[in-house]
Structure formats: structure tokens, C-alpha cells
């Protein structure tokens, strides 16, 4: 794009302001995770806590072995799931983007329909557990509901349609290239930004998913980080909102500051992985320039 200086300054101001509005709450999150629990109750949330404390992290440290394990599960699932899901999504979306493909409309509808309708929780569970026996296996975290999502397919399809000019495909075809060659030699190199975008979305989905663990795992050895964090959080929540009574001591369980600490340790790895995807955004831009 032809850039203009004025426009760039304007962009800095607008995005900068938005950036600050995003950073500030995170700063509050970070600071309150380092605040003494009682101090929050007494003095409220603050960017400059009166009583600094590492108690929240110390509490998490007590179960550090479990947390490390859950980290490893999450990383494995995210990496494998992203690669696998990305391949299947792209392979599915590309044919749908080809206008001249016979039966394209039916296929399109077939995919789209799944966005709105599925059998619901119980039937899906029965299918996966009774026919595929995925309960308490690592597959449970990889496959159900998130491996290929119609939403991402639709997005990828549109990207293919807009960012790969029909003329390029036509030209390759006139040269007598087969469909496989066109895909491998022409489409894939052009599609790197698409991969980066989708890969980012898919990996966030995998990283943040806890429903599959909730549904298909009873063995806590396979818990992903989110499952573990979710479990910690919900146990506190349940304890503080039940009067079933008993000899549970609230003092044994974390509360406000730990939730903040939990949020922090859940976000950091994704943040660290982000530049990896960004590299390809940049490449996409460079490619576009070459093309012109």
C-alpha cells in the first residue's frame, strides 16, 4: 500500500490508545496476583498493592508437579492438534474455494450445516466412547469438536478465494499442470499468511479448550493445563457457594489472588508462541510485494 505519514501517525495514536486500554486491565491482573489476599479484601484492587505477596504463586507451587505435567500435555496437544487440524482444514477448504468444482455447493452446505446442527452432548459422547473408545485417551483432547471446525473452513475458503487470483490458477491449468501440482506449487506458497492466521486460531482453541477434558477424561493424569486450572478455580467457587457443609476448610483452598495467578500462568505460553505465527504474516506481505 502507498503509505502516508499522516495516516501512520493517526494509526499509532488510535492503536496505541486501544493498546493501553488492553494493557491496563492485564497489569491489574498481574499486580493483583502479587497482592496479599487479605489486602485485596481490605484495600481493594490496585495497580500499586500495599502489601506485596507471593502467596498465590506459592500455593500453585505446592502442586507444581501436577502443573508441569499439565503444561506438557497442553503443549503436546496444542502442537499436534494445530498441525493436524490445520492440514485437514486447509485440505477441506481449498476444494471448496474452487468455483469450477462440480458438487461444490453441496459440499459447502455439508460443511456449513455442521456449524449449526450437531447431535448434542450426549449422542456425541456416546459415538466417541462406544465406537471409538477415546475416553481417557489423549485422542479425547485432540479430536472431538475442535479438530476441524466449519467456522475455520469457511474462513479459509474465503481467504483462498480472495488471496489467490483466479488468473494464476488458470495460467497453471493452461500450462497443463495437474490439480495436485497446482495445489503444491502455486497455491501453498501463496497461502502462508492463511496458514499463519488459521494456525493461530486453531492453536488458541486447543490451548484454551477444557470442555473435551471435562467430558472425556476422568483420569486426571491426562488433564491439560486448562482442565487443571479450571478444576482449581471451580473447586474454590463451589466451596464458596455451597452450604452442603462439612469439614472442608476454606483456608486450604485458594481464592481471589490465586485465580489471577492461574490466569497469568495460563496466558504466558501462548504469548510466547505468538511471534512464531507473526513471522508468517510478514512473509505474506513480502510475497504480495514480489507478486506485484
Amino acid at each position: 500500500m502507498i503509505k502516508s505519514r499522516k495516516m501512520e501517525v493517526f494509526a499509532y495514536i488510535v492503536i496505541g490508545l486501544i493498546g493501553i486500554s488492553i494493557i491496563l486491565p492485564f497489569l491489574l491482573l498481574l499486580m493483583s496476583s502479587f497482592t496479599d489476599e487479605i489486602s485485596i479484601t481490605r484495600n481493594g484492587y490496585s495497580f500499586f498493592p500495599k502489601e506485596f505477596s507471593l502467596n498465590a504463586y506459592a500455593y500453585l507451587g505446592k502442586s507444581s508437579a501436577t502443573i508441569v505435567r499439565a503444561y506438557l500435555v497442553s503443549i503436546f496437544v496444542t502442537v499436534v492438534g494445530t498441525v493436524w487440524g490445520l492440514v485437514m482444514t486447509v485440505l477441506c477448504a481449498y476444494p471448496l474455494s474452487r468455483r469450477e468444482l462440480p458438487g461444490r455447493k453441496v459440499m459447502n452446505f455439508y460443511v456449513f450445516f455442521t456449524m449449526l446442527f450437531n447431535g448434542g452432548l450426549v449422542p456425541t459422547y456416546l459415538t466417541y466412547t462406544q465406537y471409538f473408545h477415546i475416553k481417557n485417551t489423549i485422542w479425547a483432547l485432540l479430536v472431538p469438536n475442535i479438530l476441524v471446525q466449519a467456522y475455520n473452513v469457511m474462513l479459509a475458503k474465503t481467504f483462498f478465494q480472495t488471496s489467490i487470483p483466479v488468473e494464476v490458477l488458470e495460467a497453471a491449468r493452461v500450462d497443463g499442470a495437474r490439480e495436485t501440482t497446482i495445489f503444491g506449487k502455486v497455491v501453498l506458497p501463496l497461502a502462508k499468511p492463511i496458514f499463519a492466521t488459521l494456525g493461530l486460531f486453531i492453536s488458541v482453541t486447543y490451548w484454551n479448550d477444557w470442555t473435551n477434558g471435562l467430558i472425556y477424561l476422568t483420569d486426571s493424569k491426562l488433564f491439560s493445563l486448562q482442565n487443571l486450572l479450571n478444576r482449581m478455580t471451580s473447586n474454590i467457587q463451589f466451596l464458596s457457594s455451597t452450604s452442603l457443609g462439612g469439614n472442608v476448610t476454606a483456608a486450604d483452598l485458594p481464592s481471589q489472588t490465586v485465580r489471577m495467578a492461574i490466569a497469568i500462568i495460563g496466558v504466558v505460553p501462548m504469548l510466547a508462541a505468538y511471534p512464531f505465527f507473526q513471522k508468517y504474516f510478514v512473509k505474506g506481505i513480502a510475497l504480495g510485494a514480489v507478486k506485484g
Binding site: L121, Y125, L126, K135, L214, I215, T218, R231, S234, F238
Partner: peptide, 20 residues
């Protein structure tokens, strides 16, 4: 088979639907 509260409610709905 102890479970935490959230998964317990969910798991009972599911396990009692199948043959587990």
C-alpha cells in the same frame, strides 16, 4: 472414582447415558 464437582455432575449425566 473421585471427581471434582464440575466434572462430577457432567460425568454422571454422560456415564449414565452409556454402558460404562
Amino acid at each position: 472414582m473421585p471427581m471434582d464437582v464440575v466434572s462430577f455432575v457432567e460425568q454422571m449425566t454422560l456415564m449414565l447415558s452409556g454402558d460404562e
